[in-house]
Design a binder for these strands. Structure first.
Lengths: 377, 377
DNA sequence: GTTGATTTGTTCATTTTATGAACTTATTGT
DNA sequence: ACAATAAGTTCATAAAATGAACAAATCAAC
């Protein structure tokens, strides 16, 4: 679709933000002459456009940036019921949305997508010509081509080639991805980790997910399982987990676990904020639960830092504030369990996200394939 | 030095082993015509040569492989005293060796290298013209250019630009690297992980080191600290570690820790094999120590698998056999602490290495830079 | 104001790199 | 012997990138 130089240019801009042609040339290791042509082509394709003019000594430079309306992507989240379907522009802004019933039958899903797509696109006529891909986020393991779902407990799938089924029904390039990995990709393309080459995103919700970027690219692992920190043993001989082992991070630090522990203690808390309130009022059980959960998540993050030395840890969460007891304990535990001379070297940020995370993440998978493409050799 | 296509070809061969021109062309996404020329150039450079002829239907194909004597590299280990210096061919075979006194002064080291180099090369006259680089392995942190030692406790260094000092004195391209990372690179280039894209090497010795390969490339981490698993907290509130925290893997599972625990228990064991013998004779203290150490290392490896989903874990060790109690417990702990459906999916191999590991690893760093080069964008 | 310095970005002839199609070479199978 | 088959080469051509010269747009200084 695009030449490799064109893709490289888009990749650099998506990582560094707007740049002049000259800066692009040097950062891509090409001549100004070559850049001139590549930029011209992408501008006439409508993917790139000139933005700000920077005045300095000499002729002013004109910054080039991705044209927000230069490419559109559809994102579908199979994590919710009904399934969310959004249309995203090149900035990750959602410009249209629809929902569709969630099914477990791949053919039915493809059919539903094909039916809902025209409704979605009807809201933005201009996007039809510039629709470059569909991304689907789901809970489960996905192969390295982002085409087959190797296994999904939630959907009851094993080796389902969803991407090609949808591609065939809609005629549009389709890619699927694990939920946490999709969130990481959207943060890399549209969020706060644009210019970070190596980082991990921890998605904190009912479950705990995680995904790594290494060298500016999503690292999926040999079986697509990189980042599955939820089932690392964090409390040896701890509580039994639904996975079959004991003391998994998931049994202590996920929202689901926190709520269950609260319930077991007889606390009427339905959210993290409720529990934080109780704790701030001095409720010993609430404090104990938040301490335990925060320590567990902090230790896992410390391992992450110690093992992989990322440039940033980003925790995304739908619920709750992260400036209470839980967040504080978590950060302290993370700092206390890394090599002292490392402590404070790796920024740990948290970011509240809205209910569109999964669908936006799904769309970003399609954008990622458009911008970065499949791994070269 | 080499064009990017030439480098890519060498990289592919070093990963896949000998290939025909046609196979190379398809696996590199080039035409047969282009391959023909690239191969011709590399053969006349002496880097590549024709080996086996494969007969099938049609004209037989001729496999191309790296010419063992097509390129030579010098490896220097600053981990031992005296420091080891070896000359390695393109297969990782050591064809000459020297030693030199170990110094802590970078200028003295460079001087010593410059003095010893001619003696080393005198043993292999033909290597002089084909010496493509020097690699130096040391204990410490190295920057991403593999040029500056950011910090080394052992050598008492902070921000020492050793590579450029040596380069200036010798006139030869020089790169430095952390010890464990150097070992991982030598396994990737010359050892048993040639065709594995994602793996981690755990070097088990007096200390415990680790390094990751991701996507066929060494992943160094944002501060060069990826793989520093020795100081991950494995026994919360465990024994104090020299790093300042408690319960680090290093305090329980390193050879140094094992020997110290044995001594504390009054056992006269000076090696892992001694301790294994005691354990097999029923000595409760020996059994306890090996259990504790094996469990700790196994748990750390389980985390490694769970976090990064590598295609292989390779444990290199100078001392001991790994088929005794320690190895068994370690493997069981590793399997027991990963998501059950993962268990057994990630091969955990161990490999006994000789005293040349560090120097050979150092040489492989130079080879790696020749073959793979610095990270492209 | 005018002039010079400075830097961006374009143009174009040239070089480098890769391609497609035709061809040669070396083998197996019949 | 003769087709069938596949590897590897050759060569004219196309595609991609370069270097050098140049046009354009500004600042700074007098």
């Amino acid at each position: 679709m695009l030449t490799s130089s064109q893709q490289q240019l888009l990749r650099v801009i998506s990582q560094s933000g707007p740049l002049s042609r000259t800066d692009l040339a040097t950062s891509m290791g090409l001549s100004k002459a070559a850049m001139s042509g590549i930029a011209r082509d992408l501008i006439s394709l409508g993917v790139l456009h000139e933005t700000e003019t920077i005045y300095g000594q000499g002729r002013p430079s004109i910054l080039l940036d991705l044209h927000p309306e230069g490419a559109f992507f559809v994102g579908i989240s199979l994590l919710e019921d009904p399934a969310a379907m959004v249309l995203s522009d090149f900035n990750g802004s959602i410009v249209a949305r629809q929902t569709m019933p969630r099914s477990r039958d791949p053919d039915v899903i493809a059919e539903l997508i094909a039916e809902t797509l025209p409704k979605l696109l009807a809201e933005r006529e201009d996007a039809v010509r510039k629709l470059y891909g569909i991304g689907i986020a789901l809970s489960g393991f996905v192969d390295e081509k982002q085409a087959n779902c190797v296994q999904s407990t939630l959907l009851g799938w094993k080796d389902v080639p969803l991407a090609s089924i949808v591609r065939q029904k809609t005629g549009i390039d389709t890619f699927i991805e694990n939920d946490a990995k999709a969130v990481a990709v959207s943060e890399k393309l549209f969020g706060s980790t644009r210019d970070v080459q190596n980082f991990s995103v921890v998605s904190f919700d009912d479950g705990i997910g995680c995904a790594h970027f290494v060298g500016g690219k999503l690292y999926r692992g040999n079986h697509g399982g990189a980042g599955e920190i939820a089932h690392c043993t964090i409390e040896p001989n701890g509580s039994p987990c639904r996975c079959g082992k004991r003391g998994c991070l998931d049994t202590v630090a996920s929202m689901k676990a926190i709520k269950e522990m609260a319930k077991a203690e007889g606390l009427a808390c339905s959210s993290l904020d409720d529990l934080e309130n109780e704790a701030s009022l001095g409720n010993a059980a609430a404090i104990r639960i938040l301490h335990r959960a925060g320590n567990a998540l902090g230790l896992a993050i410390a391992h992450l830092i110690q093992f992989n030395d990322p440039g940033m840890i980003l925790i995304t969460h739908v619920e709750g504030r992260f400036d209470g007891l839980f967040g504080t304990v978590m950060r302290q535990a993370a700092e206390a369990n890394v090599l002292p001379r490392y402590a404070g070297q790796t920024p740990i940020r948290n970011q509240r996200v809205d209910g569109d995370v999964w669908a936006r993440g799904a769309a970003s998978i399609a954008a990622h394939n458009f911008l970065i493409g499949p791994s070269p050799n």
